[in-house]
Design a protein around this nucleic acid. Structure first.
Lengths: 365, 365
DNA sequence: CTGTTAGCGCTTTCAA
DNA sequence: TTGAAAGCGCTAACAG
């Protein structure tokens, strides 16, 4: 008892039905070339009658353009990336492009595989939040380019890769946040969600090196933290930075540790949502209070942060704008705009905003 | 100073390079048919040398399958849908399918357009969280089916449409939550995020009718609320349900109103994240406290809810599972599994969980 | 302005 | 086993 269905009508059938040549049907239905009003309406009527719909694949086959963009992110389920993808999606849809989105689960191998999928599917361009750390790990990106597929980076720049990248100034945003903490009087501010390394580095330099070997955004945020310390002439203390796996559990453990130090932390800078919630749990578990006992600023504002008790001071990232901008840059490239200059990559830096609420107060005496 | 790039190598070029017929190259590269080890390795070597990559479009053209799934949701930027999409994406990727995702911004017209885009792009199947209210507004879904493209619904069933639908039991989940509130002693519980209608309906029946003319999930949740009231023998009071636009602002206004009633609300059931944050803001603005003055339960648990002060009791939806399950059902359909039975649609109902935390307490005397 | 013809790159009979 | 040739549905020259 299956539904009866014949093969979808092709343009030839429409032409036959309308009693015109195939090209004429193609011209009116494809919206190109000249067709007399007379034939035009006959074709349209025939198409209507048959329920004709163009086969986009066949069209792409002969034109060489798919009107499809590829998007590669670590995790489409993450609200941040979801927002970015929404931006890309809206901006490209407005220009007639659809998007294929692939999640890499933060794995470089999956990112490479994703890139191949997109190349094979003949997308017209790709925007990627890459896990690549430098030119040596980004051959797949260069490969897309060499095959004529423009690529723009979003959220994460790749040091040494001369490509358009739509990002925020993570370093400056972090510095601003930590500076605010210091300005409130804090001298012991913890950094939550550090580089995922096993041991605790003794020297500041080792930490920076480790960060450079990991996610670009994380490294930049760490540098911004260090910058703020330097600006204020505060000493660096390895005990105040979280190391190890980037999980909420680990954040809880690390923050509890920092809170248990003889010269305990009085303020926390959290670089991601899970770091914030982890820190909050740790603070609560140890009986401290925000902001009376410990101040806190986190990355990635959300509607929840505003209804917390107390409302949280957060760094707001322009998620949608990152996406729309990336799509615009990519679309321009597809239209033939010149790519990055030989003397350095184009960096499109979008503004962040420190949304001041009530989680920052002077340290208790 | 542009990068030199020749047209990507085709299978013919690989064949020539390997000194074999085109079909032989196609057979080894396509992984089908028989090829002698001898020629096989020669082809592979040639492909490697030329940097050959299959053109998936051309392949789809001749095989008729695109190994691509279409996904239509209201807003990919919404964490809930992002989670669902992540589930779909992971499950389908594991089976070699990629996904094109389209956001409709909750507009039926955009949904119809999206459906056409996917049909034109020859996707092998579609999963949609539809805004359609019934058979009359879901012609586009039937159209996809009639063209041989399987469709499965996710999150939102469409009454009267006999299609596989992967959903949760919204009515039961709502009833459970409201029952918990009533069990705590509340007799005046408000319903936040009601049907988007202009005026306040006098009669309960008008409200239910209005709900039926709107989003399926919303209607079900309202029915569950009503069920709980009935179970407990509590009277329905139109003043306790929010009506109007579904925005956080409106929720704030409505909750403030309910809190200002002579016989004010002492508990709130919020059907969505923004309803929860709106309610929280209103409660705070009016000087009340959770749960001392007003209890609250909301839909869509998140990591934030657990770190609120107090931690919020919430209904947890299996976002990822909704997605993976929908993908599995769709993939099975693509594989030729029989679709819904003539005597009713297949409903795949996933469990929700009421995560009890501390936002529910007996009403204050 | 319209129709004919030749591809786009791949798969798939069909002979050899 | 392998190769030649046809065809998927559409666009794009090129005549007419």
């Amino acid at each position: 008892m299956t539904v009866e269905r014949s093969a979808p009508p092709t343009i030839s059938e429409v032409a036959a039905e309308a009693g015109v040549g195939r090209a004429t049907a193609a011209r009116t239905l494809g919206g190109y070339g000249y067709v007399s009003p007379e034939l035009r309406s006959r074709v349209l009527a025939a198409a209507e009658r048959l329920g004709y719909r163009a086969n986009a694949l066949a069209r792409s086959m002969s034109t060489g353009v798919s009107h499809t963009l590829g998007v590669i992110v670590a995790d489409i389920g993450n609200p941040f990336f979801a927002g970015v993808v929404r931006g890309i999606s809206d901006a490209s849809r407005a220009r007639g492009f659809d998007t294929i989105v692939l999640s890499t689960h933060e794995s470089l191998d999956e990112e490479i595989a994703a890139m191949h999928v997109l190349i094979d599917k003949q997308v017209d361009g790709i925007v990627v939040a890459s896990a690549a750390l430098g030119p040596k790990t980004s051959a797949h990106i260069a490969e897309a380019w060499s095959r004529g597929i423009p690529v723009v980076l979003v959220d994460r720049a790749v040091p040494g890769l001369e490509l358009d990248a739509v990002v925020i100034d993570n370093r400056e945003a972090a510095r601003e946040a930590v500076t605010a903490l210091i300005a409130a009087g804090h001298r012991r501010v913890g950094f939550v969600w550090g580089p995922p390394i096993a041991g605790r580095p003794d020297r500041r330099r080792d930490l920076v090196d480790a960060a450079a070997r990991n996610l670009w955004t994380d490294g930049e945020r760490l540098r911004g933290y260090l910058d703020a310390l330097d600006d204020a002439g505060l000493p660096f203390d390895a005990d105040l930075v979280m190391v190890g796996e980037k999980t909420e559990e680990r954040a809880i453990a690390e923050v509890e540790r920092m809170l248990g130090l003889d010269d305990r932390v009085t303020a926390l800078f959290c670089t991601e949502t899970d770091a914030v919630t982890g820190a909050l749990r740790a603070i609560r578990a140890t009986g401290f209070r925000v902001p009376a006992d410990v101040s806190l600023i986190g990355f990635d504002d959300s509607s929840w942060a505003a209804v917390m008790e107390p409302p949280l001071t957060m760094i707001e990232q322009p998620m949608l704008a990152l996406g729309t901008r990336a799509a615009e840059v990519l679309l321009a490239l597809i239209d033939g705009a010149p790519r990055s200059q030989p003397d350095g990559a184009f960096r499109h830096t979008l503004d962040t905003r420190l949304v001041e609420r009530s989680s920052v107060a002077p340290p208790s005496a």
